[in-house]
């Protein structure tokens, strides 16, 4: 009861944090996707380099978020920009990985047919490979978005704002209610992002590629 009262009294402030949080997720995942998709496509053309890059990206992913934020704090200072930089880096890997596998897993029959009937490499990419890899790419974006919703709570620590502020305040003052004020909306947000992107994926999948029931 106390929690609901607290939630209601802090409504506008939480709403503002939520807006900032959503902004952090959308901006970083968008930037990450813009970087990851072309990079993933480029990697499919140079398989040897691809293995090195994907291994490196996986290694970066294992660096704890707090450590990365620490680096960002030192290098870029406090505020939203360093937080976005770190979140963007984290959002790259799932999309990169899925773009790469999505395109590599397009059956050779399709690319062979495309080349054989006279498509240029670019036409093959845009008319055949990307449409067929689209499902995998969107799955990558979905994973990224869910990740970033939770990573973004950490970003509150270096002054990015968002739902993380409430959690950090709660932790600093030993007030579990404040922690929940940040954590519960964050969890719901993660769920909603996942559902929304899932719906988008279904809409974007051509009928011919949908699994038949």
């Amino acid at each position: 009861m106390k929690l609901i009262t607290l939630f209601l009294t802090n409504g506008p402030a939480i709403g503002q944090s939520l807006a900032v949080h959503i902004m952090l997720v959308i901006v970083s995942v968008s930037l990450g996707t813009i970087i990851a998709v072309p990079l993933g496509i480029a990697l499919t053309r140079t398989k040897r380099i691809a293995l090195i890059v994907l291994a490196t990206a996986s290694a970066v992913q294992t660096i704890p978020g707090l450590v990365m934020l620490g680096f960002a704090l030192v290098l870029l200072g406090i505020g939203r920009a360093p937080a976005l930089a770190v979140l963007t880096i984290y959002s790259i890997l799932p999309v990169l990985h899925n773009t790469y596998t999505g395109i590599t897993e397009v059956l050779p029959a399709y690319t062979d047919a495309a080349t054989g009937i006279g498509m240029t490499a670019m036409q093959t990419l845009f008319k055949v490979e990307l449409p067929l890899a689209l499902g995998a790419i969107i799955s990558g974006i979905r994973v990224s978005a869910v990740y970033i919703v939770s990573w973004a709570t950490l970003a509150g620590m270096i002054g990015a704002g968002g739902l993380g502020d409430w959690i950090w305040t709660g932790l600093a003052t030993y007030n579990t209610d404040y922690i929940l004020l940040g954590a519960v909306p964050a969890a719901i947000l993660a769920f909603l992002f996942s559902a929304a992107i899932g719906a988008l994926q279904r809409i974007l999948t051509p009928r011919g590629l949908r699994r038949r029931a």
Partner: peptide, 20 residues
């Protein structure tokens, strides 16, 4: 590319584009 557009090509795996 121009050459291939003037030559029909059919493969065993059919290779119809499933997204079309």
């Amino acid at each position: 590319v121009q050459l291939r557009r003037r030559i029909g090509y059919v493969i065993q795996q059919i290779g119809l584009f499933p997204n079309m």
